[in-house]
Design a protein around this nucleic acid. Structure first.
Lengths: 264, 264
DNA sequence: TTTTATACGTATAATTTTTATACATACACT
DNA sequence: AGTGTATGTATAAAAATTATACGTATAAAA
């Protein structure tokens, strides 16, 4: 039986179980019951199903600890994001008032989102009053949105600008809110978005002012053991990468490798 | 019937539906079928269930568009994170090779995570060789981990340091990997973590060098209409807030309000 | 030592959810 | 007018889940 043969609901439970074993190192029926509000019987089923998926290095039950303990070299059946991992690790303090995330609560106007979504899916152009953060001016212009972008923090969108005659990244918050945005058909087919289609390969290495021990830390943090870290990013999004990885900051731990060509 | 009365699986589907209506402005059965691999009949059930939850401003079926259209002032039944929203908005380009997220792929060593999780849940102290990023030195020290922290990007942990005699935030990547970490009982009860328990109230406002239109953009982006934005954060995490909101950057769009006392 | 509590495992019937299927309606498109 | 695709509803079958019972093992308390 494979993971994909399962129904969505049970697959989610087995993935959660998998994360418990990988990141907590152990799991109990109660974890599933508390998380998914299923019965004891179903939790027992899920454990049996999970164990049948794991051919080698399967978790074993420890009668002292009253829990299934993951093998030392447990192999996860699926990858997980940092947020997934934290969701599994954080439950120690489940009864606390406030979560541990001091996140910047950005906001997106639902109405504007539906308008942009409609323009993208129906392939329309839309007239927006867009405020430049450099000049401070708010100019009306026609744009043809093509897709949403997520930089890990905030949602932007990509659109062809009829004013600049090129594709650009736009920030929803910079659009002057309106009840009814002017929309229109796109008569001439849009050009290729070459900055989007082009993948840039970027090589990074620990900053040279770091000690060997500090460089080892940086390698661990970004998960590479080779000399350089290879990053592929769409050219259209390269700006976000620099800002997000803090490459431009003075205390940056990573720096670009200036060479163009490099054998992997 | 309330949302909480539903089973986990169906609740997830109705929440997805709710996000479609809120952020896309419309939804079809196919959205549920593609996302959750359920049957047409079940998708029809889910729509019926969702509509029965919505008392007023319910979505209505549009025979031209062959879709349920959210009312103009549709009220979501649950809040969603930016990632949730993006997951709903991004599906336009589902068949693309690479996702639109140029995320910094941080990594966390699973073995270290299980050791830290064990220390936290069993309330043990642990001996780690920790590399300082300021001095570059790697010193062994005993720490008593108390909880994991997520700054939106990376997972850290909070621990009492027996070397500094205070609580500090630690980065897993700065710990020298070991097969078996020394662990020990905590004999003397740990002191209160006052920096964790203390909530700081921070007031922010659009930077003064911004034009009124630019200030309006900042207010929209961070979702406040008043003069100031109130942010509450644990004192122990204030450092992450500054860095994460980019308050220290030269082109920062927000700045702290220096006054201590302020009436909301 | 005995008892109690709490994990685990398994099995069965009852219940609920979901699927498969059929048939009807409405609208857009050719 | 015919075709395709979306909706709606209904029913029986299949699958998932729950409720329940009973058994084992271990730790902690009486």
């Amino acid at each position: 039986m494979a993971l994909d043969d399962l129904k969505h609901a049970q697959r989610q439970r087995l993935l959660f179980l998998d994360r418990c074993f990988t990141w907590r190192g152990l799991a109990r029926r109660r974890d599933l019951i508390d998380r998914f509000k299923i019965s004891i019987a179903q939790a027992a089923n899920d454990f049996r199903a999970y164990l049948s998926l794991i051919a080698e290095n399967a978790p074993v039950y420890d009668t002292q600890l009253k829990a299934y303990i993951a093998a030392r070299d447990h192999q996860p059946i699926a990858a997980s994001s940092m947020l997934d991992i934290f969701a599994v690790l954080d439950t120690v303090s489940e009864n606390e008032i406030s979560a541990a995330l001091p996140r910047a609560k950005r906001s997106l106007d639902p109405h504007l989102a539906t308008v942009l979504y409609g323009a993208i899916s129906k392939q329309r152009k839309i007239r927006i009053a867009y405020t430049s953060m450099s000049s401070g001016e708010t100019d009306p212009q026609w744009v043809a949105p093509t897709r949403f972008i997520f930089d890990g923090e905030n949602i932007h969108f990509r659109a062809y600008s009829y004013k600049r005659n090129e594709y650009r990244n736009f920030h929803p918050a910079r659009i002057e809110p309106e009840d009814d945005f002017q929309m229109d058909e796109i008569v001439e087919p849009l050009p290729q978005d070459s900055d989007w289609d082009t993948l840039r390969v970027i090589w990074l290495k620990p900053s040279k002012h770091l000690s060997p021990a500090q460089a080892a830390v940086v390698r661990r943090e970004y998960g590479f053991t080779d000399e350089y870290l290879k990053v592929e990013v769409r050219q259209a999004l390269e700006f976000y990468l620099d800002r997000r990885w803090g490459l431009t900051e003075p205390q940056a731990r990573l720096e670009r490798v200036p060479i163009e060509h490099h054998s992997s």
